[in-house]
Simulated assay, not measured.
Amino acid sequence: MNRIQTLFNIKYPIIQAGMIWCSGWRLASAVSEAGGLGIIGAGSMYPDVLREHIQKCKGATLKPFAVNLPLLYPNIEEHVQIIIEEKVPIVFTSAGNPAIWTKKLKSHGITVVHVVANLKFALKAQTEGVDAIVAEGFEAGGHNGREETTTLCLIPMLKDEIHIPIIAAGGIACGRSMLACFALGAEGVQVGSAFAVAQESSAHEAFKQKILEANEGDTKLSLKKLVPVRLLKNEFAERVAKAEAEGADKETLEQLLGRAKAKLGMFEGNIDEGELEIGQVSARLTKITPAKEILMKIWEEFLEEKERIKNLNLG
């Protein structure tokens, strides 16, 4: 077992990303039951909803699971208190300063992992005492780094400077990409888009179908003047792209974004007017399958490719 498997007490070093509107208790418990680490995405939940999902996840699996906690969320204090009260074993923090909550969470015996997209924030998170880092490359769906550093560049960059375990994220949906990340220095992988189309994902079926129809080039990093986010192309994304091309300022983009656009698209299924967050790897996804099947296919291919590389005769 490597450090990630030991840290989380999981069989496979495969983590399901905490995706808003996709990662409820059904998906999280299914991934954990299969031997990975399932994550409840708290970013789309009011405090009472988060408590309900944690309790249902505990009822569905006795294995470890985590909560993803965006630190800029307005109900952050209530979320933290619920996580402590419900004795959630692992928290993945993102979108904010890890200095604010890491010590409090760890004082209650909670393992803390922080999501970063560059070396600067990885070093800061390590200094603040987090237990591991998720290094998320430019390929990833959802909110992303302004630097646009790809996973291939980001992982070895962090490995040279970081001594705590690194979990690679962005563009990973098969065993080959997992093996590549391990070769670069990662000890685990976080998978988002592939689990977004799992049977247990809480994403709307229309959104899942839109993902499966995606081709190469159908996603784009947008809204860099606000919080960068990778979006699947639709009418809403085209309006955003047009506004950005015309030099729209932050206030104009905020008005265009409005409220609850992600919920409208990803959870309610309005694939024209909603915000559809998904990664570049969506172009490789072809069907809706159970979370366990997705996880095991990645792991088995990882082992097969590891043997293939070992047996290469390169002279």
Rank of each mutant, 00 (worst) to 15 (best):
T6V: 06
L7Y: 10
L7N: 02
F8W: 06
N9Q: 11
I10T: 03
I14Y: 00
I14A: 15
W21D: 00
A30D: 03
S32H: 00
G38C: 01
I39Q: 02
M45D: 03
M45R: 04
D48Y: 05
D48W: 06
L50N: 03
E52C: 01
H53T: 13
K56D: 00
K58W: 05
K63W: 10
L69S: 04
L72Q: 12
V80H: 07
I82Q: 01
K87L: 15
P89S: 13
S94W: 05
N97A: 06
N97F: 05
I100W: 14
L105D: 01
G109C: 04
I110V: 02
K124D: 02
Q126T: 08
Q126S: 11
I133W: 04
V134G: 11
A135N: 05
E136L: 12
F138M: 11
G141D: 00
G141M: 10
N144M: 06
G145Y: 03
G145K: 06
R146A: 12
E148T: 13
C153T: 12
I155P: 02
I155Y: 14
I155D: 02
D160A: 15
D160R: 13
E161R: 13
I166M: 11
I166C: 12
I166P: 05
A169D: 00
A173Q: 12
G175V: 06
S177P: 07
M178S: 09
A180P: 02
C181F: 13
F182L: 06
L184K: 10
G185A: 07
A186V: 15
G188W: 15
Q190P: 00
Q190S: 04
E200R: 11
E200H: 10
E205P: 07
K208G: 08
K208C: 10
Q209K: 15
K210H: 13
L212H: 05
A214Q: 00
G217F: 13
G217W: 10
K220S: 00
L221Y: 03
K225T: 09
L231T: 04
N234Q: 14
E235D: 12
E238N: 15
R239W: 14
A241G: 08
K242G: 04
K242F: 13
K242H: 13
A243K: 12
A243Q: 02
G247M: 10
E251I: 12
E254F: 14
A260Q: 13
M266Q: 09
I271H: 01
D272I: 09
E277Y: 03
G279C: 14
G279Y: 01
Q280F: 08
V281F: 14
S282L: 12
A283Q: 09
K287H: 11
T289G: 07
K292F: 07
E293G: 08
M296Y: 05
K297C: 02
W299Q: 07
F302C: 12
L303R: 09
E304D: 14
E307R: 08
R308Y: 12
I309G: 03
